[in-house]
C-alpha cells in the first residue's frame, strides 16, 4: 500500500529545569520530559487512523511534530516522499508541505482569531498559501467551502463570538480543507461540542473524507468516537505506542492492559461500576527509566520482567502490534 505518512523513531524531549534555588554558582540539573519517545507508525493514503491516549501521553506533541509546528529531537517524518522532519519549524511556513498537512483544532473557539470574521478565517490559508489574491475568486472559493461544510453564507461576515460552537467548528474545518490537503489531522474535533452537534460534525467529516479523498489522523480520547471514523487505531501511553491495529479487532480483543482499561472505561448503561482495573498514578514522564515498562505501577501485572526490560512494539498478527511482555492476559 502507498503510505502518505511514515513516522520513524520519532522523539521529542522537552528540557525541564528544576528552578528551585540550590546554591550559588550551581547550574540547576537539567531534566528531559520524554513527550514522544521513539514512535513509529505509518498512515496509508486514504486511510483514517485513530490516535488514542490520555492527556499527557504525547498525542498533542506528536500532532505538532507532524504539522511541523515544533522541531523533533530525533527521527524521521516521511510525507509524500520527503523527510519533512528536516525542515526547521521556522521555515515550514514557506514549504510546500504546509498546505498539504492541515489541522482541525480541539477548541473551535480558541482556534479562531476573535478579530477575524468567518470569511477572514477561511480565506487566510487561501491568501497565504493558495496564492489567491483576486477578491472575486477568493469570495467564490470561500463560499464554496462554506457550502461544503454546511455553513450558511450569511454567517461569513460574523465574528467568532457571534456564532455557535457547531458553526465555529465548521469554520475551523473549512479553513483546514481550504487547500485540499492530503493529510488532515483532527485534534479532538468534537470534544468541545454538544452531542447533537457532535453527530453532525462527525458525519460531515466522514463525508468530506470520501469526497475529497483525504487521509485522516484522528486524535481523540473518546473511543466511541474513534470507532466511528477510523480504520486503524494507535494507542499511546506516556510517549510510547503500546498497541496498534485494526479498529474492530482492537476493540473486540484488546491485547495491552492499558487498551483494555480504556475500553473498560467506556460507560455502559446500568452497569453501575466500571470494569477499569488500574491502580496508582502514572509514572513521571521526566527522565523515565529506559528499562521499566511505562505502564508499570498502574498495571495489574507486576512481573519482574516488566521492571527490568522495556517491552518493544512487536507484531502479534498481521497488522497488529503490541508492546507488552504479557499480552492477551
Amino acid at each position: 500500500m502507498n503510505n502518505i505518512l511514515e513516522v520513524n523513531n520519532l522523539k521529542k524531549f522537552f528540557p525541564t529545569q528544576n528552578r528551585v534555588f540550590n546554591g550559588f554558582g550551581k547550574k540547576p540539573p537539567s531534566h528531559l520530559l520524554h513527550a514522544v519517545d521513539n514512535v513509529s507508525f505509518s498512515l496509508a493514503s486514504g486511510e483514517s487512523l485513530g490516535l488514542v491516549g490520555e492527556s499527557g501521553c504525547g498525542k498533542s506533541t506528536l500532532v505538532r511534530l507532524i504539522t511541523r509546528l515544533i522541531d523533533p529531537t530525533e527521527g524521521e517524518i516521511w510525507f509524500a516522499g520527503e523527510n519533512i522532519a528536516r525542515i526547521p519549524a521556522q521555515k515550514a511556513a514557506r514549504h510546500g508541505m504546509r498546505s498539504q498537512i492541515q489541522l482541525v483544532f480541539q477548541d473551535p473557539h480558541d482556534s479562531l482569531n476573535p478579530r477575524f470574521t468567518a470569511f477572514d478565517s477561511i480565506a487566510e490559508p487561501l491568501k497565504r498559501l493558495g496564492n489567491i489574491s483576486q477578491s472575486d475568486r477568493l469570495q467564490n472559493r470561500v463560499e464554496e467551502l462554506a457550502d461544503r461544510v454546511g455553513l450558511s453564507q450569511t454567517l461569513l461576515t460574523r465574528f467568532p463570538h457571534q456564532i455557535s460552537g457547531g458553526q465555529k467548528a465548521r469554520v475551523g474545518i473549512a479553513r483546514a480543507i481550504a487547500l485540499n490537503p492530503k493529510l488532515l489531522i483532527l485534534d479532538e474535533p468534537t470534544s468541545a461540542l454538544d452531542v447533537s452537534v457532535q453527530a453532525i460534525i462527525l458525519r460531515l467529516l466522514a463525508d468530506l473524507r470520501e469526497t475529497l479523498g483525504m487521509s485522516y489522523l484522528f486524535v481523540s480520547h473518546d473511543l466511541n468516537v474513534v470507532r466511528l471514523l477510523c480504520d486503524r487505531v494507535v494507542v499511546m501511553y506516556l510517549g510510547k505506542i503500546v498497541e496498534m491495529g485494526n479498529t474492530n479487532a482492537l476493540f473486540r480483543q484488546p491485547l495491552h492492559p492499558y487498551t483494555k482499561a480504556l475500553i473498560a472505561a467506556i460507560p455502559h448503561p446500568n452497569s453501575r461500576h466500571s470494569a477499569v482495573n488500574l491502580k496508582g498514578e502514572p509514572r513521571s514522564p521526566i527522565d523515565p527509566d529506559p528499562h521499566v515498562c511505562r505502564f508499570y505501577g498502574r498495571c495489574f501485572k507486576e512481573a519482574k520482567q516488566c521492571h527490568q526490560t522495556m517491552p518493544l512494539l512487536q507484531s502479534k498478527e498481521s497488522d497488529r502490534f503490541v508492546a507488552c511482555h504479557f499480552p492477551e492476559i
Binding site: R64, L69, R94, F105, Q106, N113, R128, A176
Partner: peptide
C-alpha cells in the same frame, strides 16, 4: 491561543503573526 498555531498552519510568517494576530488582540 489556538488561533496563533492556526495562523502558522495557514502559512503566516512570524512577522505577519505579530502584526495581524498578536498586536490587534
Amino acid at each position: 491561543a489556538g488561533y496563533i498555531e492556526a495562523a502558522k498552519l495557514s502559512g503566516n510568517g512570524d512577522w505577519r503573526i505579530m502584526a495581524r494576530y498578536l498586536f490587534p488582540n
